[in-house]
C-alpha cells in the first residue's frame, strides 16, 4: 500500500505524467516536481491505488477517476480572503484605480478551488464595480471549472473565510454572499454570472483576451518549476495594460523574469505591482 509521502520511482512518475498528457492533454512537466509527486502519492493513497502501474491502468479504464485524479494534482486555494491584509489593501487602494476604467478586464489564471475568484467577486461587488468588469477564470481542467461555476464552498472553509472577511471590514458578513441548498453552501450565482470560464492552460496557449487591467495570480507560481515560472510571468505580463495591476502570492517574487523591470511595486508587503 502506497502512503501519502511515498517517493514514486522517477520512471513511474514520468509514465504517469505521460499518461495524463495522452489522456487529457494536460502537460505536468512544467510542475514543481516534489510537490507534484506528493500530489500523486496523496491521491493514490486517498483512492487506495496500490502501485503506479495500477494507477495508469485505472486512469486508462476509468474516465471519472481520470478527471478526479487530474483535478487533484492541482493544488487548491485554502480559503477566501487568505492574507486579509492584501485584500484590505486591494479594496482600499487598487479598486479606486480600477474604478477609473470604463470597462475593466480581469484575469484569474489557473484557478483551482475558487476562493480567490470568490474573494475578488465579493470585493468588486462591495465596491459596486462588478457590473463594469469582465472577469475571466481559466484552468486546463474542466472539472475544476465546473466546480468553480457551481459556487460550492466547503463547509470547513466558511468559518476562517468569514473571519478573514471581518478583518477587511468588521461589519462585513460573508453570509450575504452565500446560499444554502440541501445543507451545502454555495457562493452567489448572481455574482458568478459575471465570470467567463474558459478551459485553458497557461503554457503554450494564447491568453483568453488581452489588455487586462488586473491579473490575479496568487500562489500559483509555487507549483511551477523555475524555468516555467519565468516564461509564465513574461507571458502574463504581456497581457496587462500600462497602469494595470499584477498580484502574486506573498512568498513569491518576480526575480529573474524579463518583465520584472516593467513593474513597479505598489505594495511590497502584499506583492502588488503596477505595470509601467
Amino acid at each position: 500500500m502506497i502512503d501519502e509521502f511515498e517517493t514514486i520511482p522517477y520512471e513511474d512518475f514520468r509514465k504517469i505524467i505521460s499518461t495524463v498528457r495522452t489522456l487529457r492533454d494536460v502537460d505536468f512537466t512544467y510542475f514543481a516536481q516534489d510537490i507534484l509527486m506528493h500530489r500523486m502519492s496523496r491521491s493514490m493513497y486517498m483512492h487506495g491505488v496500490q502501485s503506479p502501474d495500477r494507477l495508469i491502468n485505472k486512469l486508462i479504464a476509468d474516465n471519472y477517476f481520470a478527471d478526479l485524479f487530474l483535478s487533484e494534482l492541482f493544488v487548491p486555494t485554502t480559503e477566501m480572503f487568505r492574507d486579509a491584509s492584501m485584500w484590505k489593501f486591494f479594496e482600499d487602494n487598487i479598486i479606486e484605480k480600477l474604478k477609473n476604467e470604463t470597462l475593466c478586464k480581469i484575469w484569474v489564471p489557473q484557478i483551482c478551488g475558487d476562493d480567490e475568484l470568490f474573494s475578488l467577486l465579493t470585493i468588486l461587488h462591495r465596491k459596486r464595480i462588478l457590473n463594469r468588469c469582465t472577469v475571466y477564470a481559466t484552468s486546463p481542467v474542466q472539472k475544476i471549472l465546473n466546480d468553480a461555476k457551481s459556487g460550492y464552498i466547503e463547509q470547513k472553509k466558511i468559518e476562517i473565510s468569514s473571519s478573514n472577511f471581518k478583518k477587511i471590514d468588521p461589519d462585513a458578513d460573508l453570509n450575504h454572499y452565500l446560499t444554502k441548498e440541501d445543507k451545502y453552501d454555495y457562493f452567489s450565482q448572481e455574482l458568478l454570472n459575471n465570470v467567463i470560464f474558459i478551459k485553458r492552460g497557461i503554457i503554450g496557449t494564447p491568453p483568453p483576451d488581452n489588455g487586462f487591467n488586473l491579473v490575479l495570480f496568487r500562489d500559483r507560481m509555487l507549483y511551477l518549476n523555475v524555468q516555467t515560472k519565468k516564461a509564465v510571468i513574461d507571458s502574463l505580463a504581456k497581457t496587462i495594460v500600462s497602469g494595470g495591476f499584477f498580484i502574486i502570492g506573498i512568498r513569491e517574487y518576480l526575480t529573474g523574469c524579463d518583465f520584472r523591470g516593467s513593474f513597479i511595486p505598489v505594495s511590497k508587503n502584499e506583492n502588488i505591482y503596477v505595470k509601467k
Binding site: A32, D34, I35, R42, V75, P76, T77, R82, L222, V226
Partner: peptide, 13 residues
Amino acid sequence: YVDANNQFSLSTE
C-alpha cells in the same frame, strides 16, 4: 519543501 536543486518549494496544499 526543499527540492533536489537545494531550493525551497512552498505550497498551500
